[in-house]
Design a protein around this nucleic acid. Structure first.
Lengths: 225, 225
DNA sequence: ATAGCTTTGTGATATTCGTCACATTGTATA
DNA sequence: TATACAATGTGACGAATATCACAAAGCTAT
């Protein structure tokens, strides 16, 4: 499926820097693909051949670590996926899996490189994005390894509410096992702590529905463990 | 101190892509500064105003985390320092401190941006470097949070021998407290484990001097905890 | 050289959290 | 609706490691 990028409502900040002719190149060399919840978008260990732009849905970026699966982070649109791999390594260094139904653009890597070459603004936007990713990942790693598990769980819930869903009521998009993989703890601990939070009146849950009742408390736990 | 970049033996891969005129720009707009062991090169929270290129010495990149100090990684030449900050944020998101006497180039940020603009090769090299950093940091984070502490300590020693000093005999450039900050454990645990390694004939130490006697064992510990 | 600081070694104790085990609930599919 | 599988709740227990306390050793600057 091909479409005109100049009309795309999901266009990225970087792409907004391109001129008409460059956008035409992009239009002619990408396809939009839909993924169902649970589908694998990128698989660790396979060759990376495309730039992927996430325009709709929610995904998890995960690494098969030395022992277990680790979820590095969740990503929501608009964002490029797999940029680091494409230019930094030959094979994908991590997997990306859809947590909701997703729409992504597969962009031909040669065309993408050409755009980097032709448009200094475009490549500078990409450089800025990569820089922000790195700072973010430093900080995430520092938090994860230093905070107590309670604090990390609080962070995940706050991330859902403040960034991902931008609402204090939402449907938790991942299982407790996956939350465990995200904050490096066991499923059981996640279960126990969520029960605690509920008992303390911090959250209210019905199945996968969650409401953050006392965000102040959650922020305190995030800070003080 | 100004110098001719085209004659510099420490020139970066990216800079090697520049032509004579562009190198001249660089030559005229950078200064080489020496730092003594222990000196702060970049301080978290201050404004970042220069691109810094490390051409000699060894540094640590560290973040003042929610609780304690965390060393993100050690870096050796040739490498840019603080790139992510310069383009991704206004103030420095981490500190960089010299572990040995260092020489760094401070490059005017406007000139650097101009080079990015003028040379597609230069900016592509920078993009590739940023991508590699990110992949590396994903992996480092996954290892740290998943491996047992023994395994992480083994990794640090192997990193000294294989990457940083490229010799199985070296002077440990950081204290046990700092090793603790690097692998998220306490000073005491580091001390105890190093004693164990020595008792098991894996390493031999005399003060700060360390020799890796049985690298095979160390690699096994790195893999299996 | 020596006083004062940083770094390191080591024991005792407390805490956190993972693991195992099993019951329970939820969900998808035939 | 029945059946199977995935996800969750919860208790008991043990292992890894942080913390505290203090002694010893190294370094640095006057």
């Amino acid at each position: 499926m091909e479409s005109d990028c100049s009309l795309c409502p999901y266009i990225s900040v970087a792409e907004a820097k391109l001129d008409g002719c460059q956008l035409k190149q992009l239009s002619e060399n990408h396809i939009v693909v839909g993924f169902k919840k649970g589908d694998s978008i990128i698989k660790q260990g396979t060759y990376s051949t495309n730039i992927i732009f996430l325009r709709k849905g929610l995904v998890k970026i995960h690494i098969t670590g030395p022992y277990s699966e680790q979820i590095v982070k969740l990503a929501k649109p608009p964002t490029y996926l797999g940029l680091p791999t494409t230019f930094g390594a030959k094979v994908n260094q991590y997997s990306i899996t859809a947590l909701e139904d997703c729409e992504v653009c597969f962009i031909d890597i040669t065309v993408f490189r050409n755009l980097l070459k032709e448009s200094e603004h475009f490549s500078f936007e990409i450089i800025q994005a990569l820089c922000r990713y790195e700072i973010e990942s430093f900080r995430r790693c520092a938090n994860r390894t230093q905070k107590l598990t309670r604090g990390n769980l609080a962070d995940v819930l706050l991330d859902f509410a403040n960034n991902i869903f931008q609402s204090d009521v939402f449907t938790v998009p991942i299982s407790q096992t996956e939350i465990g993989n995200l904050i490096d703890t066991s499923r059981e601990s996640v279960s126990r702590m969520l029960s605690e939070f509920e008992k303390d009146g911090i959250i209210r849950t019905t199945g996968k529905q969650m409401e953050i009742v006392n965000k102040k408390s959650l922020e305190l736990i995030s800070q003080n463990g």
